[in-house]
């Protein structure tokens, strides 16, 4: 996992935690998101960005990264049922929306069973 300890962005090295999430969420910006996404083999479309900004906003409001269940529900409430469902989110983030979207958004790993 040694190669996962840093993320290269614009010649800078950003520290990651041992699960590959950004250590300091203040250091996040769009370039960081693009670098994470490239490593996850995801090309960020407008739909991806919407989710990434949504989970970041979620974190700022609730001080916790959303697990998938609550992410689906919160998105359904704010963006409508066509976006607030797990199929839509898994199409965008095939390795797991809560995991991938929070990583790309520079947030800590979401809790497993909440």
């Amino acid at each position: 996992m040694a190669e996962l300890n840093y993320l290269q962005v614009d010649g800078k090295q950003l520290a990651l935690d041992k699960h590959g999430y950004l250590s300091d969420l203040q250091l996040w910006d769009q370039q960081v998101a693009l670098a994470f996404a490239a490593r996850e083999n995801i090309e960020l479309s407008e739909a991806h960005w919407e989710v990434v900004h949504f989970v970041r906003q979620f974190y700022l409001e609730f001080n916790t990264s959303p697990a998938i269940r609550v992410l689906v529900k919160a998105m359904a409430q704010q963006l409508g049922a066509d976006k607030g469902n797990s199929k839509y989110l898994f199409l965008l983030f095939p390795q797991g929306p809560a995991k991938q979207a929070t990583r790309i958004a520079g947030l800590p790993k979401p809790a497993k069973c909440l």
Partner: peptide
Amino acid sequence: LKAYPRSFKLFALY
């Protein structure tokens, strides 16, 4: 310690 009381606003979502 983590400022978890801010997460009480999650109650409605749950």
